[in-house]
Simulated scan of single mutants.
Amino acid sequence: MLNRTYTLKSERQAPGFKAAKDHVTVLFCDNAVGHLIKPGLFYRASNPRAVKGKNKNLLPMFWQSNKKAWVMAALFLDWFQKCFILEVKQYLEEKGLDFKVLLIVDYAPGHPVALRFAHNEVEVVFLPLNTTSILQPLDQGVICCFKAT
Score class of each variant (00 low, 15 high):
123 E>H: 11
99 F>G: 07
116 R>A: 02
90 Q>P: 03
98 D>V: 11
89 K>I: 00
109 P>S: 06
127 L>Q: 07
85 I>R: 04
102 L>W: 00
85 I>V: 14
112 P>S: 08
127 L>C: 02
118 A>Y: 03
90 Q>K: 15
116 R>P: 03
113 V>E: 13
128 P>Y: 01
87 E>H: 00
93 E>I: 07
95 K>S: 06
98 D>F: 06
126 F>M: 10
128 P>E: 02
113 V>R: 14
101 V>P: 03
123 E>R: 14
112 P>N: 08
94 E>W: 09
112 P>R: 10
97 L>I: 11
90 Q>S: 13
89 K>A: 03
93 E>R: 13
97 L>M: 14
106 D>A: 03
124 V>I: 08
95 K>G: 04
90 Q>Y: 07
111 H>W: 04
119 H>T: 01
104 I>T: 11
107 Y>I: 15
125 V>N: 10
116 R>F: 00
107 Y>E: 15
88 V>C: 09
122 V>W: 09
129 L>K: 15
86 L>D: 12
114 A>V: 08
118 A>W: 01
104 I>A: 05
129 L>F: 10
94 E>L: 14
125 V>P: 05
111 H>M: 11
105 V>P: 05
107 Y>P: 15
130 N>T: 12
102 L>K: 08
119 H>P: 08
114 A>C: 10
117 F>A: 13
121 E>K: 13
130 N>V: 08
110 G>A: 01
125 V>G: 02
124 V>F: 00
112 P>F: 02
91 Y>H: 14
118 A>H: 05
88 V>W: 00
97 L>R: 15
127 L>F: 05
110 G>T: 00
121 E>F: 07
91 Y>W: 12
87 E>S: 01
130 N>S: 13
124 V>T: 10
113 V>S: 12
93 E>M: 11
97 L>Y: 12
111 H>C: 06
95 K>F: 00
130 N>P: 05
113 V>W: 12
124 V>E: 03
98 D>M: 12
121 E>Q: 12
86 L>Y: 10
118 A>N: 03
126 F>G: 08
114 A>Q: 14
85 I>T: 08
124 V>S: 03
101 V>A: 06
121 E>A: 10
110 G>V: 00
116 R>K: 14
96 G>K: 09
123 E>Q: 13
126 F>C: 09
98 D>T: 14
87 E>W: 00
85 I>K: 04
104 I>E: 06
105 V>R: 04
101 V>I: 10
85 I>S: 04
130 N>Y: 12
87 E>D: 06
104 I>Y: 07
130 N>C: 12
130 N>D: 13
113 V>G: 08
89 K>T: 08
96 G>I: 07
89 K>E: 11
124 V>L: 06
90 Q>F: 09
86 L>S: 12
128 P>H: 04
112 P>W: 01
113 V>K: 14
87 E>I: 00
103 L>F: 03
111 H>V: 06
126 F>P: 10
118 A>D: 07
130 N>R: 14
128 P>V: 04
107 Y>C: 15
90 Q>W: 05
108 A>M: 12
119 H>R: 08
94 E>N: 15
97 L>S: 12
101 V>G: 02
88 V>F: 01
116 R>V: 09
100 K>L: 10
115 L>V: 06
129 L>Q: 15
115 L>N: 06
96 G>W: 04
109 P>Q: 05
95 K>D: 03
108 A>Q: 14
127 L>S: 01
102 L>G: 00
85 I>M: 04
122 V>I: 14
92 L>A: 02
125 V>L: 13
116 R>Q: 15
106 D>S: 08
100 K>M: 09
